[in-house]
Simulated assay, not measured.
Amino acid sequence: METFNLTHSSRSTFILMGIPGLEAAHVWFSIPFSTCYLISLLGNVMVLFVVGKEQTLHKPMYLLLCMLALTDLGISTSVVPKTLCIFWFNFKGITMVGCLTQMFFVHATSAMNSAVLLTMAFDRYVAICYPLRYTIILSNAQIANLGLMGLIRAVLFILTLPLFLSRQHFCSSHVIPQTHCDNMAVLKMSCGDITFNRLYGLVIAFLITGLDLMLVAISYSLIFKAVLRISSKKAHQKALNTCTAHICVMLSSSTFSLFSSLSHRFGQGIPPYVHITLANLYFLVPPMLNPIIYGVKTKELRDKFVKYTCRK
């Protein structure tokens, strides 16, 4: 297949290079990419199906799991299909509008994912520290309102990123050494002053990822403080077990998200192919692992999975 013609590409078209330096191995990279994506689709769709079908699972915790599944699907779907087109068919071109649209969905779904994880931490805090008032503090309607607030925050904060970028003048080379249109990767092609854009991106990263992680840490400090007051070791274990799945999900999502965000700004010494390969793990690993983690650690959900998957 012919390589995409860079010299005759339109000025309104960007070129996504995939993983620079490892173009010969793109087909091999497509195997783990497509495998992780298919597992992610299957797992998250199964969560949505099971919770939707089972009236007994129409509770705040499982509604949050559905929100997490939707954001995981959004994160992976906004990047992986286009990446596979690059790997399989060498379709590297993407219009400026398409690039800015992809950028919006990548960052907006990531921001929404962060909001859902924060709400799940608050859910665990209420369940452990105020178990008798749980149904009063957190109803299904309250969870829906919190989800709506997270969505509004994501749209309002993230929409300005592509809007600011659309006003920038880009140099003659529209080549993006990435598998997707990331804010910082596109900014680096600008010929104008990008100081404001950089500062705004850092502020957004702090107000969304940084602030959410801080609030999650506060929630867990209060949870551990409450657990330590319990004299029974069995009660200790039971209380902590209710948080295990969320802690595992937080570690996988936050680690890859922070690495991807910070390495763009401060990782000049990292070889591009290493940075791009590891950054893509954020779009592959957490969406794949999250339904597995909750399926294994949550008995009620696990039993419903077995009910539907093992039905004769």
Rank of each mutant, 00 (worst) to 15 (best):
G43E: 00
G43H: 01
G43R: 01
N44L: 00
N44P: 11
V45M: 13
V45I: 12
M46A: 15
M46W: 07
M46Y: 12
V47G: 05
V47D: 06
V47N: 11
V50D: 07
V50N: 04
V50M: 02
V51S: 07
V51I: 09
G52K: 00
K53Y: 11
Q55K: 05
T56N: 03
T56G: 06
T56H: 02
L57R: 00
L57K: 00
H58W: 05
K59L: 13
M61T: 10
M61F: 14
M61L: 11
M61R: 06
Y62S: 03
Y62I: 02
Y62G: 01
L63I: 08
L64T: 06
L64K: 08
L65W: 03
C66P: 07
M67P: 09
L68K: 11
A69D: 08
A69T: 10
A69S: 13
L70T: 15
L70R: 15
D72R: 15
D72W: 08
L73C: 14
G74C: 01
G74H: 01
S76E: 05
T77K: 10
S78F: 05
S78D: 02
S78C: 10
V79L: 11
P81G: 11
P81N: 12
P81I: 15
K82I: 09
K82C: 01
T83Y: 04
T83I: 06
L84T: 02
L84I: 02
C85I: 14
C85N: 10
C85D: 05
I86D: 00
F87N: 03
F87C: 08
F89K: 13
N90M: 14
F91E: 06
F91Y: 15
F91M: 15
K92P: 00
K92S: 03
K92Y: 03
G93S: 12
G93N: 11
G93F: 13
G93P: 10
I94F: 11
I94M: 14
T95N: 07
M96Q: 11
V97D: 03
V97M: 14
V97S: 12
G98I: 09
G98H: 06
G98S: 01
C99K: 15
L100R: 05
M103G: 09
M103Q: 10
F104W: 12
F105C: 11
F105Q: 07
F105V: 12
V106E: 04
V106D: 08
V106Q: 10
